[in-house]
Write a protein that binds this DNA or RNA. Structure first.
Lengths: 190, 190
DNA sequence: CGATTCTTTGAAAACAGTCAATCTGTGTGG
DNA sequence: CCACACAGATTGACTGTTTTCAAAGAATCG
């Protein structure tokens, strides 16, 4: 399983054999079955997860049963609740496997050690964080300035792979509209 | 002007006299009059700005004249277009002074040097970035899962100072609703 | 004071949400 | 192989919310 990560990370930064061994030594392999949770609301998020195979969703569940999806993480994406992970506070979110999924996990201590000792990894992690923030900003702009139809189009364009693998009602939940509305919008658009 | 920043940063991290001198040496003081732009759409964002006095807003203008406000930055807050600043690409945003405003600016090169040479500053900047991401995530959740009334309440609670200093139609623009709707919601709420 | 900016209000139209029913495709067990 | 259950998608009718447009009332500023 680590080989998948290795192949991916090689394109992002260059590591020596020793460095890769350290990355591997501190990683934890985990398999999740469809519908299984990686993180449960109320828990402190202890890991950063790299998805080798499968698909994760991060969502918030309200008391009334409605869910809002914060993020999808397919192959080669990372997933964690940053706020809970960084501050070590209980998470508001659930992270669930939408398909049978294989992930590599690194704890906070491991991440800190790796970042402190592997300069290339540090640079990579910082780039990741920047991208994360950029993506969040752009999503906020989309939320406050696009019509529902534009949001839908932007999602399909930005994440065609996720769009194909995920039920429409989850796209609706990611965009913040009802499944019926999204269904009707698409009727016209397609 | 630097004294204001010095007083603020002292509460966040501890610096020696020499370190403060370096911070100061690389800073640029700037005054903005009300309605003056610190960053103009299409420009590359060259600075991180610390607001000593006054209030900035970051907004996006559509072709049809509608504006969406991404961020307010009052005293002791930072403002920049991170995406433009980091990638050195043209910005989609304008940053405008809503009041007569005084800022301290640091260029990308200065920031890099300071982060590389002042460990305490590096820690502080990283904490800033984390907070930024957390805030963005929480705003996304608000956007996709709150009712308009809840969004309004959350804004007033989270930013009472900004709320008092800013016209209501700008709060509307920050939340992504029309000023009329916000006016009506408040009528009931208050 | 006059000009400008901001806020509020009303009425109509557009839009989105809810509820309930139906339709579709998939997969499982008999 | 079929029948059935199940999850997902769609549709209609209705309700509720938000936008839009137009106008009128505050508030602020030079």
């Amino acid at each position: 399983m680590f080989e998948i990560f290795e192949a991916f990370i090689a394109a992002e930064a260059s590591f020596t054999k020793e460095e890769l061994l350290r990355l591997r030594a501190l990683s934890i392999e985990k398999r999740l079955r469809r519908k299984q949770l990686l993180l449960h609301e109320g828990e402190v998020c202890r890991y950063k997860a790299f998805v080798c195979k499968g698909l994760l969703r991060t969502y918030r569940a309200k008391e009334d049963g409605t869910e809002s999806i914060m993020r999808f993480a397919p192959e080669n994406a990372w997933s964690t609740d940053v706020e809970s992970f960084n501050k070590q506070i209980p998470s508001k979110y659930n992270i669930e496997a939408l398909e049978d999924t294989r992930v590599l996990l690194w704890s906070r201590e491991s991440m800190e050690e790796l970042v402190a000792t592997l300069p290339a990894f540090k640079v990579y992690v910082e780039k990741l964080k920047e991208n994360s923030l950029d993506a969040s900003q752009n999503r906020i702009l989309m939320n406050i300035s696009y019509t529902t139809e534009e949001k839908y189009q932007a999602f399909v364009t930005a994440f065609p792979d996720i769009f194909r693998r995920v039920p429409l009602h989850m796209v609706a939940s990611y965009l913040g509209v009802s499944r019926e509305t999204l269904s009707r919008i698409r009727r016209i658009t397609v």
